[in-house]
Structures are given as structure tokens and as C-alpha cells.
Design a protein around this nucleic acid. Structure first.
Length: 225
DNA sequence: AACTAATACAACCGCATTCGA
DNA sequence: GTCGAATGCGGTTGTATTAGT
């Protein structure tokens, strides 16, 4: 058997365009199928990750706002390392993003503490000192205070939403930019259908995600010119 | 200007869970 | 009910960029 080569590493712009095209066509499910049908030499897993963490139009780009940071801290103390759960409370942010933020945050915190300890022998009084001790397996869930915490989260969300009005660059907007700036150039290297893979496309697939298909066909006019 | 360290972000891997035949 | 494939999640690593010297 000849093992088909699977590409790894950073995604190219062309790969991104191809993936967006096929996700719009078939929906963000059946990643193995998408990987095959798109002709991308990527695993389904890799395609999913790329979509979820980068290409998804609902994503918010850019630095976390102070409110989001606060929210992450609050939610982490509540849920521990349940990143997807935390991400669910932060619209437009991915678990990966939050995880990365947390990691950086904790490292910075640890370094600051070190510095403080060197500067003064007095014990640390960091606000987050208890966060670092709440490990993945032991989220600090306290049902008695749960409601109170939720209220805080809701409050934080309110201000977060206000922030959103000020600075949101969704992937939609980014792609609009891409569309307008590249309309001409990309036409020469449109994604090529992996011809024979279409042959095994079962009807059921179209049934499953037909709403995606019908809803989005007009959106990729930029692809077909 | 060149080098190094720190930081942020992207991607991969392995395991667990879910789903469908 | 079982089993294999697909999907989701969390941990980890790799890489590009920025800041500091």
C-alpha cells in the first residue's frame, strides 16, 4: 500500500481558501470527508483545528480585552482547565487561544512573584495565587457561591459586549478584504476538485448539511468568479 | 546592526467520548 | 451490545515576532 503523504506545519493562504470554500459547501462536520474532497493533503483533524482556531468567521481576532482577561480568570477558578467550557462563555474566542493566554499569564505571574520575592522577603500577596493551585482535575466548584460567581460573569460579559462594539474584526471582514484584494490573482489557482473523490460523495451528505449548501452557495461567488 | 530572551500564536499528538453501522 | 471511525479536548511543542541589550 502506498501511504498518501499528509502535509503538516503552517497552512498556506491557498490551503485556507480551499478549506473555507469546502466548509462553506459542506458544513463544518465530517472533517475526514472534507479533507479528502478538498484535495488538501491534510488530515481531517488538522482541517478541523484550522477552521475552529483560525478560519471560523465567528472568531474575534486580536488581543484579549481586560474584561475578557478577567473573565478567563474567574472562569478558570470555577472550571479549572476546562478550556472548551471557558471558551464557550467567551464568544469569538477559542479554547486554544484561552489556553495559550492562561499559560502565558501564569508564567508571567510566576516570574513576577520570583522578582517580588527577590526584592522583598515578604510573602507574596498576589491576587491570583489561588488560581495557580487550582489544577485541571480539581476545579474550584463551590455550589453555594456558584450563583454569585455567575452574576459576576454576567456583569463582566455586559461590559465585554460593550467593548465588542468598539473593536471587533471578525474573519468575515478579513475574508471580505481577502476577496476584494485577491479576486483577480487567485482566480488562476482556484481550488481544484479532487475529481474522483466526488464520485463517492453519498447523497446522505447533501441531506445532512443541505442547509449549509443552500445558505452559502451565493457566498462563494468570489471563487467561481 | 546583531544577537538573545521573552512572548504570542499556531499546530500536532494522544486520549476520551460520541456516533453510526 | 459491540466495534470502528469520527470528533472533541487538553497538553505540549514548534515557530514567528517583538523587546531588550
Amino acid at each position: 500500500m502506498v501511504q498518501e503523504e499528509v502535509r503538516k506545519g503552517p497552512w498556506t493562504e491557498q490551503e485556507d481558501l480551499q478549506l473555507v470554500f469546502y466548509v462553506k459547501m459542506f458544513g463544518d462536520r465530517r472533517w475526514d470527508f472534507l479533507a479528502k474532497v478538498s484535495g488538501l493533503k491534510r488530515s481531517g483533524k488538522s482541517c478541523r483545528l484550522r477552521w475552529v482556531n483560525y478560519l471560523n468567521p465567528g472568531l474575534k481576532r486580536g488581543k484579549m480585552t481586560p474584561h475578557e482577561e478577567q473573565l478567563v480568570l474567574q472562569l478558570h477558578s470555577k472550571y479549572g482547565n476546562r478550556w472548551s467550557k471557558i471558551a464557550g462563555k467567551l464568544p469569538g474566542r477559542t479554547d486554544n487561544e484561552i489556553k495559550n493566554y492562561w499559560r502565558t499569564h501564569m508564567r508571567k505571574l510566576a516570574q513576577d512573584e520570583k522578582k517580588n520575592n527577590k526584592a522583598s522577603i515578604s510573602p507574596s500577596s498576589s491576587n491570583f495565587s489561588n488560581c495557580s493551585s487550582s489544577s485541571a482535575n480539581s476545579p474550584a466548584v463551590d455550589s453555594s457561591t456558584e450563583q454569585n460567581e455567575l452574576l459576576q460573569v454576567v456583569e463582566a460579559n455586559k461590559t465585554y459586549e460593550e467593548d465588542q462594539n468598539m473593536m471587533v474584526y471578525s474573519m468575515d471582514e478579513i475574508w471580505k478584504e481577502v476577496e476584494s484584494s485577491q479576486e483577480i490573482e487567485t482566480r488562476n489557482d482556484l481550488p481544484v476538485m479532487a475529481s474522483n473523490t466526488w464520485d463517492y460523495c453519498p447523497d446522505s451528505l447533501w441531506m445532512t448539511h443541505d442547509h449549509y449548501y443552500y445558505d452559502n452557495t451565493q457566498d462563494f461567488s468570489f471563487f467561481t468568479g
